[in-house]
Design a binder for these strands. Structure first.
Lengths: 207, 207
DNA sequence: CGCTAATCTAGAACAAGTTTCAGACTTGAT
DNA sequence: ATCAAGTCTGAAACTTGTTCTAGATTAGCG
């Protein structure tokens, strides 16, 4: 499977400038509303009005609220990945670096808990019709973790470890967002799951 | 914190027989509809009609669709735990037994993928207002895993491992349900995360 | 039994996601 | 410049979760 081709739909027609601008306005409005009351505060009519676009147009760009929020998350993740590239984690072992990276992301989310709520809820609530977009988010997250590990071409075993880390990351986030786990618990759980890394291949520790 | 008291609301008034029967009918209808089309197929009006109860009554018993589906999951989990007790897993190590238990549960869910979809989506979509109920499900799951490990009083470290396993379990289930991961991948991920068990305390292996 | 409070019912009403449609506007090609 | 095809708009309609109300029923109690 080709690396880039798989991230774009069958043949995404290129957007004109005005269309690109509309798309931006929509994503911006979505993030703004989400930053206020979370998932419920992102109301499609309000997003449309706020981004100066007709409701029908909003649905042409994003076929559902979940699509919209997942796209919003893609947007935010790109930011995050960029930021992380600039100041890479400094831990000695791969496990430490991944844990540090995730905790850094976690602190960023803590600053915008409502936005985090909207994005994560959308992500886990997404059904099959959103699979390509969710998958894209997953790939992006995988890339961030592999970056932190300093791995270029992981073994299937290591990929499984990365998936388990992502599982833990998403689910721990949810339990925190819904008030069922403390920040401390999330940290401990992240550190716990990161131990799997050195278990799989202690050689990645120093490199 | 008291063991039993925390699972029941401030003072759950005892239900009369007819009320108990209504509650059963509702849960049964919910599971039946979920078994067909999953989350979307569980429509409150239809649940009400199907269980011969007025819509308002349904909402008195379960204050939202998510509450209803989480309660449905509690119901199913009890079944499952009972079944598991009768034929406990036979692995040599704690990790093997937990993996076997989860895979058994997974196979059960595969038989009713739509029901699984409805329950898991509800679980992860639940907001703070459903926390007590979701927490109850979480405790039940924890109990099942600790049972499989053969642990009576776990350390905080071990509890973190169990939480990570639960995180992985839920999230892996979601990726499978939304068609983004294969059954084989789920198995591998479960086995991967279970390795954390022996890492924490190899002594639990035989017991 | 007869009363009172709580519960249940049928149905309307409301809220927000989604769909639809007729007409106005853009875009790209000729 | 002009035409056809595609896109955008505004507004109404539809769907399903949720709330509300007025009246009927039931449960518990003296």
């Amino acid at each position: 499977m080709p690396a880039e081709a798989s991230t774009s739909r069958p043949a995404a027609p290129p957007l004109t400038e005005r269309q690109e601008a509309r798309r931006r306005r929509i994503l911006h409005a979505s993030a703004r509303l989400a930053g206020r009351g979370g998932f419920d505060a992102v109301q499609m009519r309000e997003v449309a009005e706020s981004s100066q676009v007709a409701l029908g147009t909003l649905y042409r760009y994003f076929p559902s609220k979940v699509h919209l929020l997942v796209a919003t998350m893609q947007d935010q993740l790109e930011h995050m990945h960029g930021t992380l590239r600039k100041r890479p984690p400094a831990g000695a072992t791969a496990a430490e670096r991944v844990a540090e990276t995730l905790m850094r992301a976690f602190r960023a989310l803590q600053r915008e808990p409502h936005l985090a709520d909207a994005m994560v809820r959308a992500l886990t609530f997404a059904d099959r019709s959103v699979s390509p977009e969710v998958d894209q988010v997953s790939r992006q997250t995988t890339a961030i973790i592999l970056d932190a590990m300093g791995l270029a071409d992981p073994t299937p075993e290591q990929l499984s470890v990365v998936r388990v880390i992502e599982h833990t990351w998403h689910s721990a986030l949810i339990t925190w967002l819904s008030g069922r786990a403390s920040i401390a618990q999330v940290r401990v759980d992240i550190e716990t799951v990161c131990r799997l890394i050195d278990l799989t291949d202690p050689a990645t520790a120093r490199s």
